[in-house]
Amino acid sequence: MTTANPSVTDTTITDIAMAEHGTSLWKDAWTRLKKNRLALIGLGVLVSFIIIALLTPWIAPYSYETQNLDLGATPPSAQHWLGTDIFGRDLLTLIMYGGRISLAVGFVATAVALIIGVTYGAIAGYVGGKTDAAMMRFVDILYALPFMIFIVLLMVVFGRNLLLLFLAIGAVEWLTMARIMRSQVQSLRQQEFVEAAVSLGLGPATIIRRHLIPNALGPMIVYTTLTIPGVMLLEAFLSFLGLGIQPPQTSWGLLISYGAETMEEFPWLLIFPGLALSLTLFSLNFLGDGLRDALDVRSSKD
């Protein structure tokens, strides 16, 4: 979160060489995260998946469009490590390209939701009163809209494309983010340090940016790591219904849904994409768990 970076910390203290570097909360959190092996493994898996996804066009063993209908579906072999699908396409290549889409949807859509949700929720929670009531009623209305109809409408009006998918999913996920952020801010607002900031003469925008958001980040980050898997599954669901990614482009969700159709004949078509998605979800959950513990200030008091 760039918003958490107050301008003051940019000024470096130069001539206090003896300044004992206190453990900054983030450094402290990182130290504690490093002790959590599961979270570290999760982080490692995620980072390598992201690197692979970025490099896919250069390192993928085959092209994902080239079909080889004569070959058909073959089990894993020396040429095709994870086998081929019914069109004779290399499954490893498909999973790598599918990962690009799935990870992008997961992270970008969540980031969109996070930015909108945090800002919206923080404003509603801090300003309070009638503004808060109006803002949250708007959220309630959006909640009440059937999600599928909303997406279908978007797709019909604007046509199908990836960017729209990000926006559509983000537009739905931010609602919960906003609610969580609002309740965080409401309890933080009662604290004396916020009152102190008011009496210093700081404006509402600065108070939200420097005093409220950084303190609400812990729970928000944790919720974010829980949202990403949800978003990936949502994309799979939309693609499965034909509202998301179109062939020949593919995603993990699509691969899984095709794999499920031919599960009995060609089980590897379901197992390997499913494994990729599960690994990502596990990693995210472990990382989320670890982050929650690491970001809890109180645990550093022992």
Partner: peptide, 28 residues
């Protein structure tokens, strides 16, 4: 507001836990 200030009861609640002494004092 510059001319009037306040000192609060609970020093655990009146300081922003995410800001170092430097940030807290530099802000005003």
């Amino acid at each position: 507001r510059r001319r009037m200030q306040m000192i609060f009861q609970d020093p655990y609640a009146s300081l922003n836990p995410r800001m170092s002494v430097y940030d807290t004092l530099a802000e005003p």
